[in-house]
Nucleic acid binder design. Sequence first.
DNA 1: CTTTGACTCTCCCCCAGGGGCGGGCTTCAG
DNA 2: CTGAAGCCCGCCCCTGGGGGAGAGTCAAAG
Lengths: 265, 265
Amino acid sequence: MYNIGTFSRITGLTVKALRLYHERGILEPRYVDEKSGYRYYNREDASRARVVVALKAMDCSLSEIRHVMAYCADESDLVGLLAIKQEALQAEIARLSNISFVIDRIINREREVTKMKEEGFDVEVKRVEPQLVISHRWTGAWMEIGDVVLKLRGAAEKEISGRIVNLCYNDEYRELDADIEVCMPISKTVESPWPCRTLEGGEFAVLLHRGPFETLGESYLRVFDWIEASGRKATLPTRQVVHKGPGPLLEGDPNNYLTEIQVPL
Amino acid sequence: MYNIGTFSRITGLTVKALRLYHERGILEPRYVDEKSGYRYYNREDASRARVVVALKAMDCSLSEIRHVMAYCADESDLVGLLAIKQEALQAEIARLSNISFVIDRIINREREVTKMKEEGFDVEVKRVEPQLVISHRWTGAWMEIGDVVLKLRGAAEKEISGRIVNLCYNDEYRELDADIEVCMPISKTVESPWPCRTLEGGEFAVLLHRGPFETLGESYLRVFDWIEASGRKATLPTRQVVHKGPGPLLEGDPNNYLTEIQVPL
DNA sequence: CTTTGACTCTCCCCCAGGGGCGGGCTTCAG
DNA sequence: CTGAAGCCCGCCCCTGGGGGAGAGTCAAAG
């Protein structure tokens, strides 16, 4: 006869768990002292405990375990239960993998942004590769971009493969009736209410802008000045790559937003 | 202003959850009617609720969510938390995959046994392939096999690749000082206190025996009679492949045990 | 025989809600 | 204005134990 502490060490079940299993009728002690209430277990109980441990390791609920202990003599009786468990397991694994994927993306994005902050904020010429995107073009206010981004993000979901790019087709600044196209880079074609297209590549004058979108004008000025000084010619549409803006979770501080201005040459 | 039911439909959070989040200070209603206690929410609350939903979808605890809602303005503040979550996720995925693997093995085993039961119970000649095993050979009682099997099973763990094979080196039946070798088939070499070796293949006279191990004698008799009638010669050691016996979980009914007797020719 | 330290007992709170009960509140139709 | 339907409130129990409090018990040493 073992007291509960010894039995706990034998079986690997905690004292708490053993008391609970007693209460639930899953693993009853061989003998309970009436006066002190002390539980005493048997060698035979230990082998029954092994079954409980195994079932618990398979994420069975206590009521399932009780049922098994009471009615199942042979492992073939478990097949039904285990098959159901198996399905639930697969679903759970898929769910967790999905979460893991999303978290990974957020972390990587932040890591890239941190690196980018340490780099320069000067105008330079860059070659941009073509990129598959889903996009939505409309005429309206810049403020509307937020909602469009949310919808595109929802549609692209797991295929998102880069930063959002905003295209501006106006040759002058317009507050409420700008001709805007929001593009969400994707890794492969996606079924959605928005068209898939390829954003063409080319040579761009680029500048990293730090701060709220409202102050983008100053940086645009620097880019255009630089282009003129270098004797080149700017064309349309200009692009804004949002490296850090309102994220999928939190708004963030606009003073830390990072936007890459790209003016095609 | 939306009442809790409407807000629940907007956010996708249950009414129960919303009440809990109020109590925990995670998502407080804009206004609570003093008289009726009714909660009323705002459009702005809905966007805060989106954050809660996202964090909840990432399996964050309520205290983590509360912390995020209170102190995190930017997603970079989440990186630490998310990195920890990521690790926990990987561990959990590994755990579940492991369980899934074990369950699969049990189910497949039962399926095979079910199929085997429908097949014949006659003596026949079979070619057996060599098999890598860990094994333990000793002289003692048959009853001791149970414990040995448990230990071997624990050592081989995920590499188990077939049924247990018992080898009997005696040319006569011995109760308490039999020369027994228990073999656990494995798919690749395993570090364990028991030696890895290859169980050689060859030609065997085989018979499927159904029932408790105690009645194996009758089936042995049938095999030896058959061998003699066919003009062949039996050698040692005889083998017993336990297709269904006391399982890793439950003992099962001995009357349903299936043991394949293999006598080398 | 007593002390002492280790052990055990029951009881209560905690997680993150789900289910359900009894009783107030709102709102719309009659 | 009133009834009825639907909505909402708080409250309690359930999961599978972990943590801890306060009190009783066991066993070995002095």
